[in-house]
Design a protein around this nucleic acid. Sequence first.
DNA 1: ATCATTTCTTGATTTGAATCAAGGTTTTCG
DNA 2: CGAAAACCTTGATTCAAATCAAGAAATGAT
Lengths: 193, 193
Amino acid sequence: MEKHLLLKELQSRHEFPEEEFPRLLELFEVRSIQKNEIIFHTGDIVKYCYFILKGCMQQYYISPEGIEKIIYFAQEGTWTGEMDSMINETPSIVSTQAVEDSEVLIMNKANWENAIRNIPDFALYQIKKRGHTIARMKQQLAQTTTTTPDQKYRQLLNETPDLLQRLPLYKIASYIGVTPETLSRIRKRNTRL
Amino acid sequence: MEKHLLLKELQSRHEFPEEEFPRLLELFEVRSIQKNEIIFHTGDIVKYCYFILKGCMQQYYISPEGIEKIIYFAQEGTWTGEMDSMINETPSIVSTQAVEDSEVLIMNKANWENAIRNIPDFALYQIKKRGHTIARMKQQLAQTTTTTPDQKYRQLLNETPDLLQRLPLYKIASYIGVTPETLSRIRKRNTRL
DNA sequence: ATCATTTCTTGATTTGAATCAAGGTTTTCG
DNA sequence: CGAAAACCTTGATTCAAATCAAGAAATGAT
């Protein structure tokens, strides 16, 4: 039998004991999400955290001037949501939207608190996971100014070629931080080589 | 008696019980750091986490091409370090350097694990704190492309005017993501108004 | 299959910031 | 105090990406 995607993720960052897993899984519900559905908006107090079983989500921000910037894409086997908003009941600064028909596990605040309190290994997993997320975001931030759009595109091509296949290029452009026209030209230059 | 800076920070994000504090504090050592001292480099496995009692640190990244990007500044009453590196014993992607003579509390990995295991409120504090850090970094990432250097400068001026006073402008420029020349021109434009 | 919508490409032009270069300030330190 | 170093400003030029504009290609819906 195939190991559950969530258990795999929990064990990828921490020695999460398999026998605790059913107790944890009970605290989730399954939900289907249609392509383009926005699961929460900027300003909302986020009610759930989301673990993606199938599909893909984007998290993005829209500036007062109406400029949209995609901050990251979450694929199956990863989390999305805004924990700070859920836990402290503060407005989320980002929105999250399905870019494909998706299936997710959702857990509400009460169940999350329950899990953190009663399943110490879940708390440890969360601490480690977040540490790793922060490190990755530092790198992402560092690269905004130290690498060229060309380099960012090639990096995506190497590290997450799957993303390039499942997403329209204008979303990739927003993520990289250029206009679709510029990304188109980058691609032209790069394929000629 | 003045409340300890660290206790203040712990209680700012979580109801940390004061009576647990002495037990936690025991796990730290005090260390003085000279201006310009680099407490860890990119590639190091970071040995401690740092809570700043006095002074200011910068965390930065240097690209293969030698371009330096400051990711954030940490002032007294805040943490710095690279938890992912310390906990998982992986190379840090950033370096951290004192920009003033500073005084810090340091805690090593063993003591950190001890604290997480034995002081549940410290674990909870960490989870919440990290959630908040991630939210802030999302915002910072979002703003890299959605706001102009002008706006970023004015935002600093509003939100952390103290930073502008204690740091040289070329560091602010690196943080904002422009050259010192450009920042100089931005400032000229803005003071004339 | 066909039409409509969405997405992508290409070209011409503009623009904001980088770069290059040099002089002026301020701070540091012997 | 005075010299050296560090930091900041200003100007001229270059350059990469944004913008503007239009058309091509792909996708989806009926």
